[in-house]
Design a protein around this nucleic acid. Structure first.
Length: 425
RNA sequence: GGAGAGGUGGGAGAGUGGCUGAAUCCACCGGUUUGCUAAACCGGCGUACUGAUAACUCGGUACCGAGGGUUCGAAUCCCUCCCUCUCCGCCA
């Protein structure tokens, strides 16, 4: 949520930021509702003050045994007026809150201005020193490899659930599990995160808190009967752990890491991108979430990216980092880095991680604050998260990069102690 | 799914129509005393919205699980919903 005070004080700045984010919302309408709302509020609160003091007086008069009929009749009228204005306020307020909840976060000043993915800025590329994968044989893509080795079964996934629900089989399943465990252990042991294993379904308040609702409604699965949403990312349950809480300065920064399955409808994105594991409805992801003091959040974002990079260094997967442009930023983000891993068969980069600073946007929605020494009021903290990483895209890069000319897969060294086999054939 | 009990400030817990934004205790913060620590004593201690002020602050309103209702007036009475706990049933 954008601070209404910022909109009041600096509407041009907010409007500009929204435009840079390709958002067409009109600030004037919100400001107008805000004025209406405050005018009515003042009116009704004066009446309530009047009623409160009269009521107190009635109490005293009654105790003294005096008549209260005329004043009670007068207050009856006041109460009726109050009820009417309160109804009007509720109506205006609902409209106001709803408009406000559709506004995306504003881009940070270091976020490159741009409209589309073409405007994203590459900040780094990396490949292992002993890059042994560039040999010149014809690389099979992950779908062919998966079929040939019997480790991925898309047809049966489609039968039991639908397209976009892959089945991992045999050593494929073990490799997937190894990858998850490796990444969790790595972040726990090397980066000092606390592990969380959250629910995979959340309520609407949680979805609102992290910014999925109301705007992304159609991108999510929804169990209407129970009002539950299967999570699109662990960011949602983990960030909402501290919803409506006031933390202490000492507790910060809080660093959580958790594995969850992720569920996405991916409405309207069928086509070539959907091939194999490239875009699926259910995938696995290890996610890092941080709660930090505002002045530290951009340092923490850089550290978050480093944490992701170290995983890829250990796995020896080539990658590049993009600083997303304003137009490509997600709804809640102020700044975001995408980390993309190399797929030699697809001959392109695949987004495997996204590291974002939401500043206080989510904290406002989810009402997450902390108490700071010498500050009278609790302060909204900053939240960040990053995938560390999503296994489906990573799996594509692993299979394709680690294939041999014979069509076997060498298990990356870092994963071998988790798989207990070194090769898939 | 059935039956019962309950939801009050950071925590424990009082309060059954006006003097209660809420006793008391604990925690926390500041101070006094004291070799240090502790103890004791004194003081402070919710949040949001809104208005005034250059600011320190001051005023108004709201909040006792949520939403409605009754009433001049609701933590307190009524209705609906949600959640927690106990027992029974079902179940991985």
């Amino acid at each position: 949520m954008i601070d209404i005070k910022l909109i009041r004080e600096n509407p041009e700045l907010v409007q500009k930021g929204l435009q840079n984010k390709n958002d067409k919302s009109d600030i004037d309408e919100i400001l107008n509702l805000d004025i209406q709302r405050r005018e009515k509020l003042q009116l009704v609160e004066d009446l309530k003050a009047k009623r409160n003091s009269a009521s107190q007086q009635i109490g005293k008069l009654k105790q003294a045994g005096e008549s209260t009929d005329s004043i009670m009749a007068e207050m009856k009228q006041v109460s009726d007026d109050i009820k009417k204005i309160d109804d009007e306020i509720r109506e205006v307020n609902e409209k106001f809150q709803s408009k406000l909840s559709w506004l995306p976060n504003l881009p940070h000043e270091t976020t490159p201005i741009g409209k589309t993915t073409d405007d994203n800025v590459e900040t780094k590329t990396w490949q292992p020193d002993d890059f042994e994968f560039k040999s010149d044989f014809k690389k099979l893509d992950h779908v062919e490899l998966g079929k040939k080795l019997g480790i991925l079964d898309f047809e049966r996934g489609a039968k039991i659930s639908g397209s976009g629900f892959p089945v991992y089989v045999g050593k494929g399943a073990t490799l997937e599990r190894a990858l998850i465990n490796f990444m969790l252990d790595f972040h726990l042991q090397k980066h000092d995160y606390k592990e969380i294993f959250p629910p995979f379904m959340v309520n609407a308040d949680s979805m609102f808190g992290t910014g999925q609702l109301p705007k992304m409604q159609d991108d999510m699965y929804h169990c209407e009967k129970d009002g539950m949403y299967p999570i699109p990312t662990a960011e949602v349950p983990i960030t909402n752990m501290h919803r409506d809480e006031i933390l202490t300065e000492k507790q910060l920064p809080i660093k959580y890491v958790g594995y969850t399955a992720c569920f996405r409808r991916e409405a309207g994105s069928y086509g070539k991108e959907f091939r194999g594991l490239l875009r699926v409805h259910q995938f696995n992801k290890v996610e890092m979430v941080k709660f930090v003091q505002p002045e530290n959040s951009y340092d923490e974002l850089e550290k978050l990216v480093k944490d992701v990079e170290e995983i890829l260094h250990a796995l020896k997967i080539p990658y590049r980092i993009l600083s997303l442009c304003s137009g490509d930023l997600s709804f809640a983000a102020s700044k975001c880095y995408d980390i993309e891993t190399w797929s030699p068969a697809e001959n392109k980069w695949l987004e495997a991680s996204s590291c974002s600073n939401f500043e206080d946007f989510q904290a406002r929605r989810a009402n997450i604050r902390f108490r700071k020494k010498d500050e009278k009021k609790p302060i909204f903290l900053h939240t960040l998260n990053g995938s560390g990483l999503a296994t489906s895209r990573l799996m594509v890069s692993i299979l394709e990069n680690y294939q041999t000319p014979e069509g076997k897969i060498i298990v990356p060294k870092a994963l071998q102690k988790y798989t207990s086999f070194n090769i898939i054939e």
